[in-house]
Every structure is written in C-alpha cells, then in structure tokens.
Design a protein around this nucleic acid. Structure first.
Length: 188
DNA sequence: GAGACCAGCAGGG
DNA sequence: CCCTGCTGGTCTC
C-alpha cells in the first residue's frame, strides 16, 4: 500500500527544508531505469522518475524540484529495500510505502484522488475533477497530474482522456505497458 | 492583477 | 483529422 506520509506547500517546504536531506539512487524497473529519492530521516519517498536521457539530466530535475535540499548519493544501499517494495507485487500489497507530496492544496487533492484509483483500472480527468468536487476543472487536473513528481506510485498512468487520448510524461508506450502489467494482477 | 500557458471537453466541419 | 469556444489552477511578469 502507498500511504501519504506528509504533505507540504512550497511555502511550508521553505520553512522545513532544513529538517531532512535527500538520499538518491538509480535502479532498474520493469519499465526502465528510474531515479528514486527518499528523505534521510523517515525514509519516505519524495521523488520517483523514469530516466530516459542521462543520469545527470534526471538528477538535475530532482534538484530542481527539491531545490533547497541537499542530495546525497545512496552508497549504503539504503534505497534497495524500498525499491523491492515498489515493484514486487506481493510485498507491495502487504507492506506500507510512505510518500511525501509537495504542491498546492489543489495539486495535493488531485494526487490523493489518483491514489484511490484501484489497480488495473483507469479513470478520466473529468472524473478526477468531479471526485474533488470541482467538476469543471478537468483541464486544471491535467496540469496538476503533469506536475506530479512521484511516478508510478501516484498513478497518473491510470488517467485517460475521455475520448481515449493517451498522453503521458514518460511516453505513451510506457503508460500502456504499466497498465497491461497491472491488468495481470487483476486476474490473480 | 493581467495574460499566457496546458496530459480537457464538446461540438462542428 | 483539424479548428473553436469554454474551462480553471498555476506561473510569470
């Protein structure tokens, strides 16, 4: 299970940024290499992105997203166990993964709503907008989904356009692969 | 505070 | 497929 460990607005981040550092590492996944970032104090995930270009470019994005935090390379395999939880389905269902969300109140509401979408199913931007009681904000929901910085765990891949359009930050092919992969677990 | 973005949507051609 | 109007939250000046 993914549990929301903490949320913060950009302002709150400024006030509290000195309380944690970020441990990062690159790992392979069934969907390609990823960059994982966790807090050094409670080992909560605050960043997960697929790496399509260089490691340096991916790291730059992480630093840009958490610009006030010190990045520390994971030289003690501290992120390995968390990585196992994320992509080992049985462990994933039995255990708890903690996540830190940073964004505006609206964005956090959207991301939390995404985490309630059942595995293996999809929804639309319009339905997400309705679920946070802003039925006309479907386009703004799209903006918020795009800014999510925890790929896969905040399941933005489960949101489709109402008429089947299929955009995805990390590539539409990868979106389809993840959905197919999740579909398999529905049958078991 | 105005104006420009956008992974939206519906409707028309 | 394209275009147009309407939409709302965020970002930039």
């Amino acid at each position: 299970m993914v549990r929301c460990h903490q949320t913060m607005t950009p302002q709150e981040y400024k006030l509290n940024c000195s309380k944690f550092k970020i441990i990062y590492a690159f790992h392979p996944t069934p969907f390609g290499k990823c960059l994982l970032g966790i807090t050094n104090n409670d080992k909560a995930i605050l960043y997960l992105a697929f790496v399509d270009k260089s490691n340096e470019e991916a790291l730059m994005r992480l630093q840009n997203n958490w610009s006030l935090s010190e990045l520390i390379e994971d030289t003690n395999n501290e992120t390995n166990e968390i990585m196992q939880k994320i992509f080992n389905h049985r462990v994933f269902m039995d255990d708890t993964i903690m996540v830190v969300l940073k964004g505006t109140e609206f964005e956090i509401n959207v991301w939390k709503s995404l985490m309630n979408i059942p595995e293996g199913t999809t929804t639309t931007y319009e339905q997400v907008a309705e679920s946070i009681e802003k039925p006309k904000a479907s386009r703004a929901v799209g903006n918020a989904v795009m800014k999510n910085s925890i790929a896969y765990l905040v399941p933005c891949h489960r949101v489709m356009g109402k008429s089947g359009s299929n955009k995805y930050t990390w590539g539409t092919d990868r979106k389809e692969n993840i959905l197919k992969h999740e579909q398999k677990f529905l049958d078991t």
